[in-house]
Each structure stands twice: as C-alpha cells, then as structure tokens.
Simulated assay, not measured.
Amino acid sequence: MGLALDELSVAIDGKRLVRDLSLDVGAGRIVGLVGPNGSGKSTALKCVYRALRPTSGVVRVGVDDLTRLPLRHSARIVAAMAQDSAVDLDFTVEEVVALGRAPHLRGNQALSGRELELCARTMARLDLTRLARRGVLTLSGGERQRVLLARALVQEPQILVLDEPTNHLDVRHQIELLSLLRGSGLTVLVVLHDLNLAAAACDRIGVLSQGELVASGTPEEVLTTELIDEVFGVKATVVGHPLTGDPQLLYALAPTPTPTPTPTF
C-alpha cells in the first residue's frame, strides 16, 4: 500500500511549521526525510500517525483519506516509532512488544499462538530475546529503541513511520536495522539525520528546509555538494561508496581562525 502527502500544511499558534508538502511513498519503497533541525520533518510524520491533524492538505493511504478512517483501522495499517516515544511504566520487554497487537484485539483478549510466535520471532530479529523478561526502564537507550521498533513491527502494518530510528543505536544495530527495513517489503517513511545512512537505506529522499520541500529524488540526485551547502550550511565532498556505489558525504570542519598575537611593548 502506498502513502501520499498531498499539499500538507501544519500551523500551530499561528506559525506555519509545514507548508504545502507533497510527497509520494510508493508501495514497498523506503523514502527518507532529511533537513536541518526545525525544518518540519517530525511534524509531517505526526500527521501520518495521527498525532497531529494537518491544517490543510491530505494524507492518503492507498486511495483513502487517513483522517476519515476509524482509528483502530488506521492503526492496523500504519505503525509508528516516534522520536519522543517513551515507556514510563516498568513493563517487561515482551509485554511492551506484545502491545503492538492491541489494534487487532478486543478488550482483554489474549494473544493467540500465532501472535505469541510473531512476538518471539520479531524479538529475535532485533536481538531482544535475551532481554525478554527485563524491565524496559532498566535498558539502555539503544535497547529501548529496538524494543519500540519491535512493537511497531508486531503490529503487522502495511506502512511504517519512523522518526530517527537509529538514535542511540551502535553501528552494528544501525546496519542491522536498515537491512531489516530493506528486506521488510513495507512502505516506509523515515526521518534520518545521518545523510550517509539515508543514502544507503532509502530509495528516494525528500529534503525539507523551513517547512518546505526543496528537493526530492534518488540519493544520487539529491545529495549534492551544492544542496548540502545551501540547506545545511556545510561543505562536503560526495564520493561513491567503494562497495555499494551509494553516495557518501565527507565533511570538512571549518578552519579555526588563527588568533592575532597581542603585541608586547
């Protein structure tokens, strides 16, 4: 199932945070949103998982206007891992992961054998089996991040929305996460700050600046030295990855001015 943002705008307290954003995420494709802090990336995602209602424009899942679907129905289609996701109660890892089945259950209905197997299999994929009975409040930030992703995957969505999913993850788990997304077959809209990870993981990238989409295309089309300088204010050299050919950015620190010596008399 595809996802489309059609001239989406969000204004809060009179300030326009997202302006006329149009973006298509084809079925089974991974599209990344990148941009400086405050450019509207997380705000746009909140409209997709219904934490915010757009001021104007439409979010479509397939041919349906997302806001017209019952919440339970949309929760079966769209799963999200928000940047500010938190678990305040000390549930165990396996209890938090099982919460992903909530849109499919009624009342206190118990998980079926298939659902229990789904939870176990998903925890294994994300290297969580050994933590299954640990309280989530005892986990590191990276471990909690993987638990929340497992909860989203257990939802069995058709569309996955991820806001900075690699936060707190070590290099190994970053690579495993992106490989998992690549092989999931899901339609994925993901916000990433690391442009090199975005180039490796995404089929297409949209670049936001001050709430507006300023570029959209393949990583090769979008990640240019000119755009990085214009949008991020950073000098970078673009090279091909020696193994994959994906564009990779090499950044240069601005030279530190040499202080002028104070004359002595």
Rank of each mutant, 00 (worst) to 15 (best):
residue 117 E to R: 13
residue 133 R to A: 01
residue 231 V to C: 07
residue 95 E to A: 15
residue 252 A to P: 00
residue 101 R to F: 03
residue 178 L to Q: 07
residue 103 P to N: 09
residue 55 T to E: 00
residue 86 A to E: 13
residue 92 T to D: 01
residue 66 L to K: 09
residue 6 D to K: 10
residue 156 E to H: 03
residue 162 L to H: 01
residue 19 R to V: 04
residue 128 L to N: 02
residue 26 G to Q: 01
residue 230 E to M: 13
residue 193 H to L: 14
residue 235 K to M: 08
residue 227 L to Q: 08
residue 84 D to Y: 08
residue 236 A to W: 01
residue 246 D to H: 07
residue 207 V to A: 03
residue 3 L to G: 04
residue 161 V to D: 01
residue 174 Q to E: 08
residue 221 E to A: 15
residue 92 T to P: 04
residue 107 G to F: 00
residue 44 A to I: 02
residue 18 V to S: 06
residue 84 D to G: 11
residue 197 L to T: 07
residue 238 V to G: 02
residue 129 T to K: 00
residue 158 Q to S: 14
residue 262 T to D: 12
residue 191 V to I: 14
residue 110 A to E: 07
residue 69 L to C: 10
residue 85 S to I: 09
residue 133 R to L: 00
residue 11 A to Q: 03
residue 218 T to H: 01
residue 148 L to Q: 03
residue 68 R to F: 10
residue 196 N to H: 12
residue 111 L to W: 02
residue 259 P to N: 06
residue 95 E to G: 14
residue 65 D to L: 14
residue 135 G to C: 00
residue 140 S to E: 06
residue 236 A to V: 07
residue 65 D to W: 02
residue 105 L to N: 05
residue 246 D to Q: 10
residue 89 L to A: 15
residue 259 P to H: 04
residue 247 P to K: 11
residue 127 D to P: 01
residue 183 G to R: 12
residue 27 A to W: 01
residue 55 T to K: 07
residue 44 A to P: 00
residue 113 G to L: 09
residue 125 R to M: 11
residue 56 S to L: 08
residue 135 G to E: 05
residue 68 R to I: 12
residue 160 L to T: 13
residue 39 S to A: 11
residue 32 G to L: 02
residue 22 S to V: 05
residue 24 D to L: 02
residue 106 R to C: 06
residue 212 E to W: 11
residue 160 L to F: 10
residue 165 P to K: 13
residue 259 P to R: 04
residue 249 L to I: 10
residue 50 R to S: 04
residue 83 Q to N: 13
residue 230 E to L: 10
residue 85 S to Q: 09
residue 137 L to G: 02
residue 67 T to V: 13
residue 181 L to A: 04
residue 71 L to D: 11
residue 222 V to G: 02
residue 111 L to K: 00
residue 107 G to D: 08
residue 51 A to V: 14
residue 262 T to V: 15
residue 169 L to T: 13
residue 149 L to S: 06
residue 177 L to V: 15
residue 260 T to I: 15
residue 5 L to K: 09
residue 5 L to P: 05
residue 264 T to W: 12
residue 200 A to Q: 02
residue 216 S to P: 00
residue 150 A to K: 05
residue 255 P to C: 08
residue 19 R to P: 04
residue 206 G to T: 14
residue 161 V to K: 05
residue 146 R to E: 02
residue 49 Y to S: 01
residue 231 V to M: 04
residue 64 D to L: 12
residue 117 E to N: 09
residue 118 L to N: 05
residue 155 Q to E: 01
residue 50 R to E: 06
residue 186 L to H: 12
residue 255 P to M: 13
residue 234 V to W: 00
residue 9 S to R: 06
residue 241 H to I: 11
residue 19 R to I: 07
residue 150 A to M: 11
residue 237 T to G: 00
residue 68 R to E: 09
residue 230 E to W: 08
residue 78 V to T: 07
residue 193 H to A: 09
residue 246 D to L: 09
residue 38 G to R: 07
residue 30 I to M: 10
residue 72 R to A: 10
residue 12 I to T: 08
residue 58 V to N: 02
